[in-house]
Design a protein around this nucleic acid. Structure first.
Lengths: 243, 243
DNA sequence: GCCTATTTGTTCGTATGTATC
DNA sequence: CGATACATACGAACAAATAGG
Protein backbone atom coordinates (compact mmCIF):
# COMPACT_ATOMS: atom_id res chain seq x y z
CA UNK A 1 0.00 0.00 0.00
CA UNK A 2 1.78 3.13 -1.23
CA UNK A 3 0.48 6.31 0.29
CA UNK A 4 0.30 9.49 -1.75
CA UNK A 5 3.01 12.05 -1.08
CA UNK A 6 2.16 15.45 0.32
CA UNK A 7 0.76 17.93 -2.18
CA UNK A 8 2.17 21.34 -1.42
CA UNK A 9 0.35 24.43 -2.59
CA UNK A 10 -2.67 22.45 -3.71
CA UNK A 11 -5.08 24.29 -1.45
CA UNK A 12 -5.01 21.66 1.30
CA UNK A 13 -2.69 22.42 4.19
CA UNK A 14 0.06 19.93 4.92
CA UNK A 15 -1.14 19.30 8.47
CA UNK A 16 -4.57 18.40 7.15
CA UNK A 17 -3.22 15.94 4.64
CA UNK A 18 -1.12 14.34 7.36
CA UNK A 19 -4.10 14.12 9.71
CA UNK A 20 -6.19 12.39 7.06
CA UNK A 21 -3.35 10.07 6.20
CA UNK A 22 -2.77 9.08 9.82
CA UNK A 23 -6.49 8.55 10.31
CA UNK A 24 -6.59 6.29 7.26
CA UNK A 25 -3.59 4.33 8.51
CA UNK A 26 -5.22 3.89 11.91
CA UNK A 27 -8.44 2.74 10.24
CA UNK A 28 -6.40 0.36 8.07
CA UNK A 29 -4.75 -1.14 11.12
CA UNK A 30 -1.24 0.14 10.47
CA UNK A 31 -1.38 1.58 13.98
CA UNK A 32 -3.35 -0.61 16.37
CA UNK A 33 -5.86 0.68 18.94
CA UNK A 34 -4.11 1.08 22.27
CA UNK A 35 -0.77 1.11 20.48
CA UNK A 36 1.71 3.93 20.20
CA UNK A 37 2.47 6.18 17.26
CA UNK A 38 6.14 6.77 16.38
CA UNK A 39 7.69 9.68 18.27
CA UNK A 40 6.96 13.10 16.84
CA UNK A 41 10.51 13.83 15.66
CA UNK A 42 10.66 10.43 13.97
CA UNK A 43 7.29 10.68 12.28
CA UNK A 44 7.94 14.26 11.20
CA UNK A 45 11.20 13.12 9.65
CA UNK A 46 9.52 10.27 7.78
CA UNK A 47 6.88 12.65 6.44
CA UNK A 48 9.39 15.35 5.58
CA UNK A 49 7.74 18.09 7.62
CA UNK A 50 8.56 20.17 10.65
CA UNK A 51 7.60 18.81 14.04
CA UNK A 52 5.10 21.66 14.49
CA UNK A 53 3.28 20.68 11.35
CA UNK A 54 2.98 17.09 12.53
CA UNK A 55 1.90 18.28 15.98
CA UNK A 56 -0.92 20.24 14.43
CA UNK A 57 -2.14 17.11 12.66
CA UNK A 58 -1.92 15.16 15.93
CA UNK A 59 -3.78 17.90 17.79
CA UNK A 60 -6.54 17.66 15.19
CA UNK A 61 -6.80 13.90 15.65
CA UNK A 62 -6.73 14.28 19.44
CA UNK A 63 -9.57 16.79 19.29
CA UNK A 64 -11.59 14.23 17.38
CA UNK A 65 -10.83 11.54 19.95
CA UNK A 66 -8.78 9.42 17.56
CA UNK A 67 -5.49 9.61 19.45
CA UNK A 68 -4.42 10.75 22.90
CA UNK A 69 -0.99 12.30 23.54
CA UNK A 70 0.65 11.87 26.95
CA UNK A 71 3.68 13.98 27.70
CA UNK A 72 6.78 11.97 28.39
CA UNK A 73 5.16 8.79 27.22
CA UNK A 74 3.89 9.00 23.67
CA UNK A 75 0.86 9.39 21.45
CA UNK A 76 -1.58 6.49 21.61
CA UNK A 77 -4.36 5.33 19.32
CA UNK A 78 -7.67 5.47 21.22
CA UNK A 79 -9.70 2.27 21.10
CA UNK A 80 -12.92 2.83 19.18
CA UNK A 81 -15.85 3.40 21.54
CA UNK A 82 -18.01 0.45 22.46
CA UNK A 83 -21.30 0.67 20.58
CA UNK A 84 -23.89 0.16 23.28
CA UNK A 85 -27.43 -0.41 21.97
CA UNK A 86 -30.20 0.58 24.36
CA UNK A 87 -33.43 -1.26 23.92
CA UNK A 88 -35.82 -3.73 25.48
CA UNK A 89 -33.08 -6.39 25.67
CA UNK A 90 -30.05 -4.38 26.73
CA UNK A 91 -27.38 -6.63 28.30
CA UNK A 92 -23.82 -5.54 28.78
CA UNK A 93 -22.28 -9.01 28.45
CA UNK A 94 -23.96 -9.68 25.10
CA UNK A 95 -23.15 -6.24 23.76
CA UNK A 96 -19.47 -6.57 24.56
CA UNK A 97 -19.12 -10.10 23.24
CA UNK A 98 -20.91 -9.17 20.03
CA UNK A 99 -18.34 -6.37 19.62
CA UNK A 100 -15.61 -8.99 19.92
CA UNK A 101 -14.62 -7.93 23.39
CA UNK A 102 -14.51 -10.01 26.51
CA UNK A 103 -16.77 -8.66 29.25
CA UNK A 104 -16.46 -9.29 32.94
CA UNK A 105 -18.13 -7.72 35.93
CA UNK A 106 -16.48 -7.43 39.33
CA UNK A 107 -18.44 -7.09 42.56
CA UNK A 108 -17.14 -4.18 44.61
CA UNK A 109 -19.60 -4.39 47.49
CA UNK A 110 -22.98 -5.82 48.45
CA UNK A 111 -25.33 -5.18 51.33
CA UNK A 112 -28.99 -5.34 52.31
CA UNK A 113 -30.23 -1.78 52.82
CA UNK A 114 -33.60 -0.12 53.38
CA UNK A 115 -35.01 1.16 50.08
CA UNK A 116 -34.71 4.91 49.54
CA UNK A 117 -37.75 6.63 48.08
CA UNK A 118 -36.54 6.67 44.46
CA UNK A 119 -35.32 3.09 44.57
CA UNK A 120 -38.50 1.95 46.23
CA UNK A 121 -40.58 3.58 43.53
CA UNK A 122 -38.47 2.02 40.79
CA UNK A 123 -38.73 -1.46 42.30
CA UNK A 124 -42.37 -1.07 43.29
CA UNK A 125 -41.77 -1.76 46.98
CA UNK A 126 -42.53 0.31 50.06
CA UNK A 127 -39.83 2.78 51.19
CA UNK A 128 -37.73 1.27 53.95
CA UNK A 129 -38.27 -2.30 52.78
CA UNK A 130 -34.97 -4.21 52.58
CA UNK A 131 -33.38 -4.38 49.14
CA UNK A 132 -30.05 -5.78 48.01
CA UNK A 133 -27.59 -3.10 46.89
CA UNK A 134 -24.67 -4.15 44.69
CA UNK A 135 -21.82 -1.97 43.51
CA UNK A 136 -20.18 -3.43 40.42
CA UNK A 137 -17.50 -2.56 37.89
CA UNK A 138 -17.63 -3.72 34.29
CA UNK A 139 -14.82 -3.99 31.82
CA UNK A 140 -14.35 -5.08 28.23
CA UNK A 141 -10.96 -6.47 27.23
CA UNK A 142 -9.59 -5.27 30.56
CA UNK A 143 -10.65 -1.64 29.96
CA UNK A 144 -13.09 -0.31 32.58
CA UNK A 145 -16.31 0.70 30.85
CA UNK A 146 -18.74 1.42 33.65
CA UNK A 147 -19.50 1.24 37.35
CA UNK A 148 -23.01 0.52 38.47
CA UNK A 149 -25.13 0.50 41.59
CA UNK A 150 -27.87 -2.12 41.34
CA UNK A 151 -30.84 -2.64 43.65
CA UNK A 152 -32.81 -5.88 43.73
CA UNK A 153 -35.96 -6.73 45.73
CA UNK A 154 -34.89 -8.80 48.64
CA UNK A 155 -36.75 -11.85 49.65
CA UNK A 156 -36.58 -12.91 46.02
CA UNK A 157 -32.92 -12.33 45.19
CA UNK A 158 -31.28 -13.41 48.45
CA UNK A 159 -27.68 -14.36 47.69
CA UNK A 160 -27.63 -12.61 44.29
CA UNK A 161 -24.27 -11.06 45.17
CA UNK A 162 -22.64 -14.50 45.33
CA UNK A 163 -24.33 -15.53 42.08
CA UNK A 164 -23.04 -12.39 40.39
CA UNK A 165 -19.53 -12.76 41.76
CA UNK A 166 -19.41 -16.27 40.35
CA UNK A 167 -21.01 -15.50 37.01
CA UNK A 168 -19.41 -12.09 36.32
CA UNK A 169 -22.61 -10.92 34.65
CA UNK A 170 -26.07 -9.80 35.74
CA UNK A 171 -27.68 -11.81 32.95
CA UNK A 172 -25.95 -15.03 33.98
CA UNK A 173 -26.68 -14.39 37.65
CA UNK A 174 -30.38 -13.96 36.84
CA UNK A 175 -30.24 -17.27 34.97
CA UNK A 176 -29.30 -19.05 38.20
CA UNK A 177 -32.58 -17.72 39.62
CA UNK A 178 -34.49 -19.29 36.76
CA UNK A 179 -34.88 -16.00 34.89
CA UNK A 180 -34.08 -16.85 31.31
CA UNK A 181 -35.42 -13.56 29.94
CA UNK A 182 -36.14 -10.08 31.19
CA UNK A 183 -37.01 -6.73 29.66
CA UNK A 184 -35.94 -3.11 29.99
CA UNK A 185 -38.87 -1.11 31.33
CA UNK A 186 -37.37 2.36 31.30
CA UNK A 187 -34.08 4.10 30.61
CA UNK A 188 -33.07 7.60 31.60
CA UNK A 189 -29.83 9.15 30.35
CA UNK A 190 -27.92 12.01 31.95
CA UNK A 191 -24.35 13.26 31.83
CA UNK A 192 -22.00 14.93 34.28
CA UNK A 193 -18.34 15.08 35.21
CA UNK A 194 -16.81 12.25 37.23
CA UNK A 195 -15.80 12.88 40.82
CA UNK A 196 -12.46 11.66 42.14
CA UNK A 197 -13.79 8.30 43.36
CA UNK A 198 -15.57 7.45 40.12
CA UNK A 199 -12.57 8.55 38.10
CA UNK A 200 -10.33 6.23 40.10
CA UNK A 201 -12.71 3.29 39.67
CA UNK A 202 -12.88 3.77 35.91
CA UNK A 203 -9.19 4.65 35.57
CA UNK A 204 -10.08 8.05 34.17
CA UNK A 205 -8.32 11.34 34.69
CA UNK A 206 -10.49 13.37 37.10
CA UNK A 207 -12.90 15.76 35.49
CA UNK A 208 -13.75 13.44 32.61
CA UNK A 209 -17.34 12.99 31.55
CA UNK A 210 -19.73 10.23 32.59
CA UNK A 211 -22.89 9.05 30.90
CA UNK A 212 -25.28 8.20 33.73
CA UNK A 213 -27.97 5.68 32.80
CA UNK A 214 -30.82 4.87 35.18
CA UNK A 215 -32.78 1.81 34.20
CA UNK A 216 -35.41 -0.58 35.50
CA UNK A 217 -35.81 -4.19 34.38
CA UNK A 218 -38.88 -6.41 34.68
CA UNK A 219 -39.34 -10.17 34.38
CA UNK A 220 -41.76 -11.95 32.04
CA UNK A 221 -44.62 -11.29 34.50
CA UNK A 222 -43.92 -7.53 34.53
CA UNK A 223 -42.57 -7.72 38.09
CA UNK A 224 -39.75 -5.24 38.84
CA UNK A 225 -36.57 -7.24 39.33
CA UNK A 226 -33.77 -4.67 39.05
CA UNK A 227 -33.08 -0.95 39.28
CA UNK A 228 -29.66 0.23 38.18
CA UNK A 229 -27.68 3.44 37.98
CA UNK A 230 -24.75 2.84 35.64
CA UNK A 231 -21.97 5.36 35.08
CA UNK A 232 -20.17 4.94 31.75
CA UNK A 233 -16.87 6.53 30.82
CA UNK A 234 -18.26 8.77 28.09
CA UNK A 235 -15.24 8.50 25.80
CA UNK A 236 -15.36 4.70 25.83
CA UNK A 237 -18.97 4.14 24.78
CA UNK A 238 -21.62 5.32 22.37
CA UNK A 239 -25.20 4.70 23.41
CA UNK A 240 -27.33 3.74 20.43
CA UNK A 241 -31.12 3.81 20.55
CA UNK A 242 -32.70 1.35 18.18
CA UNK A 243 -35.84 2.08 16.23
CA UNK B 1 -48.26 24.02 55.75
CA UNK B 2 -46.22 24.19 58.97
CA UNK B 3 -42.71 22.87 58.62
CA UNK B 4 -41.09 20.93 61.44
CA UNK B 5 -38.57 22.83 63.57
CA UNK B 6 -34.93 21.86 63.57
CA UNK B 7 -34.04 18.88 65.73
CA UNK B 8 -30.71 19.52 67.42
CA UNK B 9 -28.61 16.61 68.65
CA UNK B 10 -30.86 14.08 66.97
CA UNK B 11 -28.15 12.52 64.83
CA UNK B 12 -28.98 14.60 61.75
CA UNK B 13 -26.87 17.70 61.31
CA UNK B 14 -28.68 21.03 61.15
CA UNK B 15 -27.36 21.82 57.67
CA UNK B 16 -28.70 18.52 56.43
CA UNK B 17 -32.16 19.17 57.85
CA UNK B 18 -32.14 22.61 56.30
CA UNK B 19 -31.07 21.21 52.94
CA UNK B 20 -33.90 18.68 52.97
CA UNK B 21 -36.36 21.33 54.05
CA UNK B 22 -35.31 23.71 51.28
CA UNK B 23 -35.47 20.90 48.76
CA UNK B 24 -38.98 20.04 49.90
CA UNK B 25 -40.03 23.68 49.67
CA UNK B 26 -38.63 23.94 46.16
CA UNK B 27 -40.46 20.76 45.19
CA UNK B 28 -43.63 22.15 46.76
CA UNK B 29 -43.35 25.33 44.73
CA UNK B 30 -42.61 27.71 47.60
CA UNK B 31 -39.55 28.79 45.63
CA UNK B 32 -40.15 28.75 41.88
CA UNK B 33 -37.69 27.39 39.33
CA UNK B 34 -35.60 30.24 37.96
CA UNK B 35 -36.51 32.33 40.99
CA UNK B 36 -34.27 33.58 43.73
CA UNK B 37 -33.92 32.31 47.30
CA UNK B 38 -33.98 34.91 50.09
CA UNK B 39 -30.57 36.33 50.90
CA UNK B 40 -28.41 34.13 53.08
CA UNK B 41 -28.46 36.40 56.14
CA UNK B 42 -32.23 36.68 55.90
CA UNK B 43 -32.85 32.99 55.45
CA UNK B 44 -30.38 32.10 58.20
CA UNK B 45 -32.22 34.46 60.54
CA UNK B 46 -35.60 32.94 59.68
CA UNK B 47 -34.23 29.45 60.37
CA UNK B 48 -32.46 30.50 63.54
CA UNK B 49 -29.04 29.25 62.43
CA UNK B 50 -25.69 30.78 61.70
CA UNK B 51 -25.07 31.86 58.12
CA UNK B 52 -22.29 29.24 57.78
CA UNK B 53 -24.75 26.47 58.61
CA UNK B 54 -27.12 27.73 55.94
CA UNK B 55 -24.27 28.06 53.47
CA UNK B 56 -23.37 24.42 54.00
CA UNK B 57 -26.94 23.43 53.19
CA UNK B 58 -26.89 25.59 50.07
CA UNK B 59 -23.56 24.13 49.01
CA UNK B 60 -25.08 20.69 49.35
CA UNK B 61 -28.05 21.65 47.17
CA UNK B 62 -25.76 23.32 44.64
CA UNK B 63 -23.66 20.15 44.40
CA UNK B 64 -26.83 18.24 43.58
CA UNK B 65 -27.81 20.74 40.92
CA UNK B 66 -30.90 21.96 42.76
CA UNK B 67 -29.78 25.57 43.17
CA UNK B 68 -27.00 27.70 41.74
CA UNK B 69 -25.32 30.41 43.82
CA UNK B 70 -23.90 33.38 41.94
CA UNK B 71 -21.65 35.72 43.90
CA UNK B 72 -23.03 39.21 44.12
CA UNK B 73 -26.35 38.19 42.65
CA UNK B 74 -28.10 35.56 44.70
CA UNK B 75 -28.99 31.90 44.92
CA UNK B 76 -31.32 30.70 42.18
CA UNK B 77 -33.51 27.64 41.91
CA UNK B 78 -32.43 25.59 38.89
CA UNK B 79 -35.30 24.71 36.57
CA UNK B 80 -36.04 21.00 36.65
CA UNK B 81 -34.46 19.19 33.72
CA UNK B 82 -36.57 18.80 30.62
CA UNK B 83 -37.64 15.18 30.21
CA UNK B 84 -36.72 14.38 26.63
CA UNK B 85 -38.15 11.11 25.33
CA UNK B 86 -36.19 9.47 22.53
CA UNK B 87 -38.16 7.26 20.24
CA UNK B 88 -39.48 6.85 16.72
CA UNK B 89 -41.39 10.14 16.98
CA UNK B 90 -38.95 12.40 18.78
CA UNK B 91 -39.78 16.08 18.17
CA UNK B 92 -38.40 18.86 20.31
CA UNK B 93 -41.33 21.22 19.92
CA UNK B 94 -43.88 18.60 21.03
CA UNK B 95 -41.73 17.46 23.93
CA UNK B 96 -41.33 20.95 25.29
CA UNK B 97 -44.96 21.92 24.89
CA UNK B 98 -46.09 18.70 26.56
CA UNK B 99 -43.85 19.66 29.49
CA UNK B 100 -45.71 22.96 29.66
CA UNK B 101 -42.85 24.96 28.21
CA UNK B 102 -42.83 27.13 25.17
CA UNK B 103 -40.32 25.99 22.58
CA UNK B 104 -38.79 28.09 19.87
CA UNK B 105 -35.91 27.46 17.50
CA UNK B 106 -33.68 30.21 16.14
CA UNK B 107 -31.73 29.90 12.92
CA UNK B 108 -28.11 30.85 13.48
CA UNK B 109 -26.80 30.15 9.98
CA UNK B 110 -27.67 28.29 6.80
CA UNK B 111 -25.64 27.39 3.72
CA UNK B 112 -25.46 24.85 0.93
CA UNK B 113 -22.28 22.83 1.42
CA UNK B 114 -20.79 19.70 -0.14
CA UNK B 115 -21.64 16.63 1.95
CA UNK B 116 -18.84 15.32 4.14
CA UNK B 117 -18.40 11.57 4.20
CA UNK B 118 -20.30 10.95 7.42
CA UNK B 119 -23.14 13.28 6.49
CA UNK B 120 -23.33 11.77 3.02
CA UNK B 121 -23.61 8.28 4.49
CA UNK B 122 -26.30 9.36 6.94
CA UNK B 123 -28.37 11.04 4.20
CA UNK B 124 -27.69 8.34 1.62
CA UNK B 125 -26.17 10.70 -0.93
CA UNK B 126 -22.78 10.71 -2.64
CA UNK B 127 -19.98 12.56 -0.82
CA UNK B 128 -19.56 16.04 -2.24
CA UNK B 129 -23.19 16.35 -3.30
CA UNK B 130 -24.71 19.64 -2.14
CA UNK B 131 -26.68 19.51 1.11
CA UNK B 132 -28.29 22.25 3.16
CA UNK B 133 -26.55 22.84 6.49
CA UNK B 134 -28.47 24.65 9.22
CA UNK B 135 -27.17 25.72 12.60
CA UNK B 136 -29.99 26.23 15.06
CA UNK B 137 -30.51 27.04 18.72
CA UNK B 138 -33.47 25.75 20.68
CA UNK B 139 -34.91 27.09 23.87
CA UNK B 140 -37.77 26.30 26.20
CA UNK B 141 -39.28 29.16 28.20
CA UNK B 142 -36.36 31.31 27.13
CA UNK B 143 -33.74 28.92 28.54
CA UNK B 144 -31.33 27.57 25.90
CA UNK B 145 -31.63 23.80 25.77
CA UNK B 146 -29.62 22.75 22.74
CA UNK B 147 -27.75 23.80 19.64
CA UNK B 148 -27.95 21.63 16.59
CA UNK B 149 -26.37 21.25 13.18
CA UNK B 150 -28.84 19.81 10.69
CA UNK B 151 -28.16 18.56 7.17
CA UNK B 152 -30.91 18.11 4.58
CA UNK B 153 -30.70 16.70 1.04
CA UNK B 154 -30.71 19.57 -1.32
CA UNK B 155 -32.79 19.58 -4.39
CA UNK B 156 -35.68 18.50 -2.21
CA UNK B 157 -35.45 20.95 0.68
CA UNK B 158 -34.45 24.11 -1.15
CA UNK B 159 -35.43 27.10 0.99
CA UNK B 160 -35.88 25.03 4.16
CA UNK B 161 -33.90 27.63 6.10
CA UNK B 162 -36.56 30.26 5.43
CA UNK B 163 -39.33 27.80 6.32
CA UNK B 164 -37.58 27.02 9.59
CA UNK B 165 -36.93 30.64 10.44
CA UNK B 166 -40.62 31.36 9.97
CA UNK B 167 -41.93 28.29 11.78
CA UNK B 168 -39.39 28.10 14.62
CA UNK B 169 -39.53 24.32 14.52
CA UNK B 170 -38.21 21.55 12.30
CA UNK B 171 -41.53 19.72 12.49
CA UNK B 172 -43.53 22.73 11.34
CA UNK B 173 -40.99 23.51 8.63
CA UNK B 174 -41.31 19.95 7.31
CA UNK B 175 -45.07 20.41 7.28
CA UNK B 176 -44.69 23.24 4.77
CA UNK B 177 -43.01 20.70 2.48
CA UNK B 178 -46.00 18.40 2.76
CA UNK B 179 -44.34 16.10 5.28
CA UNK B 180 -46.99 15.50 7.91
CA UNK B 181 -45.12 12.64 9.55
CA UNK B 182 -41.58 11.36 9.77
CA UNK B 183 -39.71 8.78 11.81
CA UNK B 184 -36.46 8.56 13.75
CA UNK B 185 -34.24 5.99 12.04
CA UNK B 186 -31.29 5.97 14.41
CA UNK B 187 -30.03 7.78 17.49
CA UNK B 188 -26.52 7.80 18.88
CA UNK B 189 -25.74 9.37 22.25
CA UNK B 190 -22.37 10.63 23.43
CA UNK B 191 -21.19 13.09 26.06
CA UNK B 192 -18.28 15.51 26.36
CA UNK B 193 -17.41 18.89 27.81
CA UNK B 194 -18.52 22.03 26.02
CA UNK B 195 -15.94 24.23 24.35
CA UNK B 196 -16.00 27.99 24.76
CA UNK B 197 -18.16 28.62 21.69
CA UNK B 198 -20.79 26.04 22.60
CA UNK B 199 -20.84 27.25 26.19
CA UNK B 200 -21.50 30.80 25.01
CA UNK B 201 -24.32 29.70 22.69
CA UNK B 202 -26.05 27.74 25.45
CA UNK B 203 -25.29 30.34 28.13
CA UNK B 204 -23.31 27.80 30.13
CA UNK B 205 -20.19 28.32 32.17
CA UNK B 206 -17.30 26.84 30.14
CA UNK B 207 -16.36 23.28 30.95
CA UNK B 208 -19.94 22.14 31.51
CA UNK B 209 -21.12 18.86 30.07
CA UNK B 210 -22.96 18.33 26.79
CA UNK B 211 -25.08 15.41 25.70
CA UNK B 212 -24.36 14.96 22.00
CA UNK B 213 -27.12 13.23 20.06
CA UNK B 214 -26.65 12.19 16.44
CA UNK B 215 -29.85 11.23 14.70
CA UNK B 216 -31.27 10.48 11.26
CA UNK B 217 -34.91 10.94 10.27
CA UNK B 218 -36.76 9.31 7.37
CA UNK B 219 -40.06 10.12 5.69
CA UNK B 220 -42.99 7.75 5.22
CA UNK B 221 -41.23 6.22 2.16
CA UNK B 222 -38.06 5.48 4.17
CA UNK B 223 -36.16 8.21 2.33
CA UNK B 224 -33.54 10.02 4.44
CA UNK B 225 -34.72 13.56 5.01
CA UNK B 226 -32.58 14.84 7.88
CA UNK B 227 -29.34 14.19 9.73
CA UNK B 228 -28.74 16.12 12.93
CA UNK B 229 -26.09 16.52 15.58
CA UNK B 230 -27.71 18.14 18.62
CA UNK B 231 -25.76 19.31 21.67
CA UNK B 232 -27.85 19.49 24.84
CA UNK B 233 -26.83 21.24 28.04
CA UNK B 234 -26.59 18.11 30.17
CA UNK B 235 -27.92 19.72 33.33
CA UNK B 236 -31.06 20.96 31.57
CA UNK B 237 -32.31 17.72 30.05
CA UNK B 238 -32.83 14.05 30.78
CA UNK B 239 -33.00 11.75 27.80
CA UNK B 240 -35.59 9.03 28.29
CA UNK B 241 -35.68 5.94 26.09
CA UNK B 242 -39.14 4.51 25.70
CA UNK B 243 -39.83 0.81 25.66
C1' DG C 1 16.11 7.05 46.30
C1' DC C 2 18.88 9.10 42.03
C1' DC C 3 20.20 9.68 37.29
C1' DT C 4 19.46 9.60 32.35
C1' DA C 5 17.36 9.07 27.93
C1' DT C 6 13.04 9.63 25.70
C1' DT C 7 8.95 12.02 24.55
C1' DT C 8 5.44 15.48 24.49
C1' DG C 9 4.39 20.51 25.64
C1' DT C 10 5.57 25.48 25.25
C1' DT C 11 7.64 29.63 23.69
C1' DC C 12 10.33 32.35 21.26
C1' DG C 13 11.53 33.97 16.22
C1' DT C 14 11.34 33.99 11.01
C1' DA C 15 9.44 33.52 6.52
C1' DT C 16 5.78 32.76 3.09
C1' DG C 17 1.39 32.34 0.85
C1' DT C 18 -3.52 33.95 0.81
C1' DA C 19 -7.54 36.60 1.49
C1' DT C 20 -9.53 41.15 2.14
C1' DC C 21 -9.97 45.83 2.27
C1' DC D 1 -2.03 48.42 -6.87
C1' DG D 2 -0.48 48.61 -1.82
C1' DA D 3 -1.48 47.65 3.05
C1' DT D 4 -3.01 44.63 6.26
C1' DA D 5 -4.36 40.64 8.72
C1' DC D 6 -4.33 35.77 9.11
C1' DA D 7 -3.12 31.04 8.53
C1' DT D 8 0.64 28.15 7.33
C1' DA D 9 5.30 26.20 7.70
C1' DC D 10 9.90 25.90 9.55
C1' DG D 11 13.82 26.32 13.15
C1' DA D 12 15.79 26.23 17.74
C1' DA D 13 15.71 25.84 22.35
C1' DC D 14 13.83 24.77 26.81
C1' DA D 15 10.32 22.81 30.20
C1' DA D 16 7.95 18.97 32.12
C1' DA D 17 6.46 14.35 32.50
C1' DT D 18 7.54 9.48 31.83
C1' DA D 19 10.14 5.10 31.66
C1' DG D 20 13.90 2.31 32.82
C1' DG D 21 18.02 1.12 35.05
Amino acid sequence: MTLPPLVRGGGVAAWRQIAERLEAEIAAGVFMPGGKLPAEVLLAGQLGVNRHTLRRAIAFLAKHGIVRATRGSGTYVEPSPLRYPIGPRTRFSEIASRAGREAWGVLASAAAVPAESQTAEALGVAPGEPVLRLVTMHEADGVPISTAVTWLPLPRFEGFDRAFAGAGSITRAFATYGLADYLRLSTRIMARVADAEEAALLELTPGRVLLVVDSVNVDADDARIQATRACFAADRVELVVEG
